[in-house]
């Protein structure tokens, strides 16, 4: 079995007085594609924000390659090899596409081959290279957000709801891009509400409800079982 790159053990996170994560436990396998699904308000985004350190867990452990990262500053977790695409994409709209990418290349220069690879994955990045990022469409901004997260190699890529508000045609392109990332053995932890999208990509799935993990296992098991989908998500893929 592949060694997990990320381990969450009994993680509790509060936002002000609200107890959002109530003992989250799961692993993310290295080179795998793990998807977190669940209803609105289940705690999916909070889980990602807790991993990247934007919210601090009150108790529990978060380990990256066996090293505790819980309690560390977000910048240190990012430097340890975790890339993050937030739900709002975090695009710097006043900066050009190029400047957004320059900031993501923390070493100060691009790996030209990697940049060409990204241009192949997301052609609009090349096309609008010098345009202010605020002028991009929603789908193009999402591409830029992901491009920014992969411009430098990372151990783990956290992505929060990339299909939210995105046109179906762009979602198809995004599936192709994620399949390419999978082929490159990028370890991805994706939060997604679009179960079809999640099922097309995920190796493993974690279902969160009311701040707790209610199911985890192979994505195939959940995507092929309408009863399980109904039970955990209140929907069935083939309905």
């Amino acid at each position: 079995m592949t060694q997990p790159i990320l381990q969450l053990e009994n993680v509790h996170t509060y936002i002000e007085q609200y107890h959002i994560l109530q003992g989250i436990t799961f692993d993310v396998a290295e080179n795998g594609f793990t998807v977190i699904v669940g209803r609105n308000g289940a705690g999916k985004t909070t889980t990602l924000r807790t991993i990247i350190g934007l919210w601090q867990a009150k108790s529990g452990t978060v380990k990256l390659r066996g090293q505790e990262i819980q309690g560390q500053a977000t910048s240190e977790i990012a430097r340890a090899g975790v890339a993050y695409v937030p739900e709002n994409m975090g695009i710097f709209g006043d900066l050009s596409v190029r400047e957004n990418m320059i900031l993501a290349a923390r070493r100060g220069k691009f790996d030209t081959d990697r940049l060409e690879w990204i241009f192949g994955l997301f052609p609009p990045i090349k096309k609008f290279w010098n345009l202010a990022a605020g002028n991009l469409s929603g789908g193009q901004k999402q591409m830029l957000a992901i491009a920014r997260a992969i411009i430098e190699p990372s151990d783990l890529l956290l992505i929060d709801e990339p299909t939210k508000g995105i046109a179906p045609a762009i979602i198809e392109d995004m599936i192709d891009a994620f399949l390419e990332l999978k082929r490159m053995q990028t370890t991805i932890l994706l939060v997604e509400q679009n179960f079809s999208f999640a099922a097309a990509l995920g190796d493993d799935v974690v279902v969160i409800d009311d701040g707790q993990v209610v199911h985890r296992g192979a994505m195939d098991t959940l995507s092929s079982n309408p009863d399980l989908q109904q039970q955990y998500l209140g929907l069935a893929l083939n309905e």
Partner: peptide
């Protein structure tokens, strides 16, 4: 660039690995 980006979204700057 860091300052301009930080004015827009300080959280994202940290998530890119900068010690804000």
């Amino acid at each position: 660039l860091l300052i301009r980006a930080g004015v827009e979204d300080a959280e994202m700057i940290q998530a890119l690995g900068y010690r804000i």
